[in-house]
Design a protein around this nucleic acid. Structure first.
Length: 924
RNA sequence: GGGCUUGUAGAUCAGUUGGAAGAUCGUCGCCUUUGCAAGGCGAAGGCCCAGGGUUCGAAUCCCUGCAAGUCCA
């Protein structure tokens, strides 16, 4: 990055000098002529602890308000925060920075910003330094990034570097910061495909703000190289600042840790619950925490070795041992982490993340389970929701949290119970396998501990604990989690489907879409703009291209008196491409030809019904299940549609019935379906991000569709009023992921057909049992019970029959070498009968039994009594040999074997062969 | 989106190379006991998740589906 980028007039005119840090070598700007270090840790240790840098103390609400108000007075428009779950992004799950609110469409210049310049305090969640939270004294999973942004275009500059630094500097001045204590360090920034110069504002060793001047974007042919990637200048350039709200509050209070500054009441309450005495008034204790935070500021403690190093340094600086220090620090750190994590959960759940085993939901569960584990370690037994309640009470600025508390509580209880069950199950498994290893005199292999974690979610510490209860010791290596990661094969890069002819299509003008204005018209005329094999582009069309879960229209096109079937329609950047069935005539189609198009009306109407029904069902589901319900996907077809929604429990039959009733009521209200093209920003302001349930459409204007109470951005074709949807019939629910339920339903004629189909199953079943459908449940119940009775009865009869056979057959035995043999065919007997007879006969110890039956081919059973076994009889071998005779196979144990074959005519031959083989066995 | 694990009695789980479906707890009956805890004897209770396939034969092997658990991006 060029040095020139940082030669700001503001610095030069306000007594700043550019220096190079004597420790890290980076350049920085300061008013302090004596200063030799850049002001950032580790070059400068924290000096603000116990020595606040502002003239007064602020809490979160006061600080946030001060900041936003300051920038409002400087001509910025204040914006409401965005959710912590990045609904409008498909590349990240969580909102990780204020600028994320405006990516990708505002930052790329496609969509104008909601205000310019603007200021916002955006709650953000970053889980990348999870291990450091609580320990470092400064890391948080959840923080608010206060920011002012200006979006500049060539010729339309709001403000750029000078004014940005000036505003920052003024803010510090107004807060009473000593001007000599502020440094601005040069630190080129790159991330998320963009880059630019950047200065970090540092006070007392703490980085309190980052001022990014984003004016580069990643590009293969770019002429500027940063960290190995090529970038080039953008037409627009953006002021992207980030001021850490929590750090400001910390700096204003100078408390030993950021946690004691941000949520002191909750920290204290949890310390009490954990039985940890946390007296910051005690100067000795406060000094330990302060010293820990100061030194932690100098290093990255996410690695265990570094944590130990930190302990060593802190211990020596206050004159104690590492063990003693650890015993003081660990409980305190854990409580800090619990306080932080529960605040994170508060934001996550209140903003509608449903804990799950995939996607953002997994992140929520990760935090949740970590928290529960730590609470258990600390002996905190209150429900998680009690702690979340504390946070909600502590954040009155977010009244929406309180409104959602009931659902949050329900989710938390559900999750706590689930985790408890998982741990119980896991402990049983561990104990079982530990016992196994103990008995065989082995130690517990690490692989099984890894498997317990990877496949069953049992934390290694819990595995170790459970194993030691059985008396098996387990060594846990420091790099346990990286060993887990090693076991995972790298995910394959998925192949992106590339549309053929995409480049040529891109050069064509956007197709005029007639189906929005005239949803009921099915015939049209148009002109061919271009043809690629069987792909046809028109100037205008009534054909709906696949999109938004709605499949493409089919139909026909008459070109030069030849009829072509349209078998697919795709949209490529606003250009509609019609794909016709391949035929020999297609070679005659050329640019400029007139086309008479006809859309398959039945297919279109079925799609429209299902699409409108989807909006109705979505709304009904929210009304029945709760406001946390969020569309996670949808697909329509001619005969059914499905809607995936976020929900933390299985949908019960009662709930599904309720949804069905409400949906059909909405239909009968016969409300007009209203679609209007709106400015994206206006639409977002008016309706919120609920608009994007079905996905985020690109562009500065979006089509807002109102179906009864449901308002969404939607580009599909719809019925003109809800009444035209016809009946909506729920078909089934399915759990596609933990936390995501799929509802399947049919609408319109498809619903009638689906109902008819169900009824026909019902009447067929009823006919088969010769009862009326309403008697089916009781009749089936009776039949099933009777069937079980008969089965048992059958078993008893076979036993009796076998017994009768046994009495007869014992007399028929022939003597072979001191043993007795019964070799006989019992016609029609099934294999179980043969087994029973043979089993009973061989209770006589000198008996060998060879039985056959012609039921279903040939069945053979052989058995030998104790003495016969000792004498060398092996029923397994005999039966195998006999089975080969009848064209099959068999085997078993010497005492009991079975086999069979297909050729019933050779049964006698097989019995004879068996007898002779037995003779051989006994004589040897 | 990818990976791994699991569906057997009311509950928790065994079930070997494919060859007679089991244990423990719980339930019920009887016995022992002043009573309780406990003990003894016995019994009931299984579409071995569903559907295909391989095989003479499948709880067991293969495929598909359904249900559930879990790790990661």
């Amino acid at each position: 990055m060029l040095e020139d980028e940082y030669q700001l007039d503001y610095f030069l005119e306000n007594g700043f000098v550019r220096k190079q840090c004597s420790k890290c070598g980076k350049h920085f700007w300061t008013r302090d002529l004596e200063r030799v270090t850049c002001g950032d840790a580790p070059c400068d240790p924290y000096s603000f602890i116990g020595n606040p840098v502002f003239k007064k103390k602020f809490d979160l609400a006061e600080m946030r308000e001060y900041y936003l108000n300051f920038f409002e007075e400087k001509g910025h428009t204040r914006l409401e925060r965005y959710p912590v779950i990045a609904r409008w992004r498909d590349d990240i799950y969580l909102t990780i920075a204020s600028i994320a609110d405006f990516q990708p469409f505002v930052t790329s210049g496609q969509v104008p910003p909601p205000a310019n310049p603007l200021t916002i305090s955006q709650p953000c969640i970053r889980l990348s330094d999870l291990d450091a939270v609580g320990r470092s004294g400064r890391h948080l999973t959840t923080f608010e990034m206060m920011a002012h942004h200006a979006f500049n275009k060539k010729g339309e500059e709001i403000y750029w570097k000078d004014h940005t630094v000036e505003l920052c500097d003024e803010l510090f001045n107004s807060l009473g910061v000593d001007p000599l204590a502020v440094t601005y360090k040069e630190e080129p920034w790159a991330g998320g495909g963009n880059a630019g110069p950047c200065v970090e504002a540092l006070i007392g060793g703490l980085e309190v703000a980052t001022l990014v001047f984003m004016d580069l974007k990643q590009s293969k042919d770019g002429d500027i190289s940063i960290k190995g990637d090529n970038y080039r200048k953008m037409d627009n350039y953006i002021v992207d600042t980030g001021y850490g709200l929590e750090r400001f509050v910390w700096a204003s209070k100078g408390s030993p840790t950021i946690y004691d500054a941000v949520f002191p009441e909750i920290v204290n309450e949890l310390m009490d619950l954990a039985g940890v005495s946390h007296e910051l008034d005690n100067s000795e204790y406060a000094n330990i925490l302060a010293q820990n935070a100061r030194l932690a500021g100098l290093m990255d403690i996410s690695e265990k070795a570094n944590l130990f190093e930190l302990r060593k340094q802190v211990a020596s600086s206050i004159g104690t041992t590492v063990e003693k220090l650890s015993s003081i620090m660990e409980p305190v750190e854990t409580v800090y982490a619990i306080t932080d994590h529960t605040r994170c959960l508060t934001f996550m759940l209140a903003d509608g993340i449903i804990p799950s085993n995939v996607k953002a939901g997994y992140l929520a569960r990760l935090v949740l389970r970590r928290t529960l584990r730590m609470m258990k370690d600390m002996g905190i037994t209150v429900p998680l929701s009690d702690i979340v309640r504390m946070h909600i009470n502590n954040l009155p600025e977010y009244p929406e949290f309180g409104e959602k508390f009931d659902v949050i509580q329900d989710i938390l209880e559900h999750e706590e119970r689930k985790f408890g069950e998982t741990l119980e199950r896991g402990k049983r498994m561990i104990k079982k396998s530990a016992k196994h290893y103990k008995e065989s005199g082995q130690s517990m292999p690490l692989e099984s501990i890894i498997e317990m974690y990877d496949s069953h979610g049992i934390p290694p510490e819990i595995s170790k604990e459970a194993a030691s209860e059985v008396g098996v010791a387990v060594d846990l290596p420091d790099n346990f989690y990286s060993l887990v990661a090693e076991g995972h094969s790298k995910a394959e890069a998925k192949e992106e489907k590339v549309f053929p002819y995409a480049e040529r299509v891109a050069k064509l003008p956007k197709t005029k879409k007639l189906f929005y204005d005239e949803p009921t018209r099915m015939n049209f005329e148009a002109v061919i703009l271009d043809v690629f094999d069987n792909h046809i582009v028109l100037d205008s069309t009534l054909f709906y291209p696949e999109g938004g879960g709605q499949p493409a229209d089919y139909g026909t096109m008459v070109i030069e008196d030849v009829l072509h079937n349209v078998i697919d329609v795709q949209g490529v950047d606003g250009v509609v491409v019609h794909i016709i069935e391949e035929s020999e005539d297609e070679f005659h189609i050329k640019k400029g030809d007139m086309v008479q198009g006809h859309v398959d009306e039945e297919r279109r109407m079925a799609h429209a019904c299902h699409h409108t029904a989807t909006h109705i069902v979505n709304d009904a589901a929210r009304k029945v299940l709760g406001g946390h319900v969020w569309q996670a996907g949808a697909q329509k077809s001619v005969d059914r549609a499905r809607l995936d929604i976020s929900h933390y429990k299985r949908i019960s039959l009662e709930e599904l019935n309720q949804i069905e009733l409400i949906a059909n009521r909405t239909v009968m209200e016969n409300q007009r379906v209203i679609a209007e093209w709106m400015d994206r920003i206006d639409a977002e302001k008016k309706y919120g991000f609920g608009l994007y349930q079905g996905g985020v459409p690109p562009g500065s204007t979006i089509r807002v569709l109102k179906v009864a109470d449901d308002i969404e951005a939607c580009a599909g074709t719809h019925c003109t009023s809800t009444g035209l949807v016809g009946p909506i019939k729920m078909l089934k629910t399915e759990r596609v992921q933990d936390g995501v339920e799929r509802i399947e339903y049919a609408a319109g004629l498809a619903a009638v057909r689906a109902t008819q189909e169900m009824e026909s199953y019902l009447s067929q079943a009823a006919d088969a049992l010769r009862v009326r459908p309403e008697h089916l449940p009781s009749t089936i119940d009776r039949f099933f019970n009777e069937w079980k009775e008969f089965k048992k009865e059958n078993q008893r009869l076979k036993d009796d029959l076998a017994h009768v056979h046994v009495l007869q057959m014992a007399n028929e035995a022939v003597n072979i070498a001191d043993m007795r043999l019964v070799a006989k065919c019992i016609p029609n007997a099934d294999i179980d009968e043969l087994v029973k007879i043979a089993g009973e006969l061989t209770t006589s110890e000198d008996m060998v039994v060879l039985l056959a039956s012609d039921a279903g081919g040939v069945k053979i059973v052989g058995a030998a009594g104790e003495d016969a076994l000792k004498a060398g009889a092996d029923a397994g071998k005999i039966v195998r040999a006999m089975s080969q005779v009848v064209g099959g196979g068999g085997g078993g144990k010497p005492a009991m074997a079975r086999g069979g074959g297909v050729d019933a005519s050779k049964i006698d031959e097989a019995l004879a062969a068996g007898q002779s083989l037995l003779g051989d066995q006994l004589n040897n």
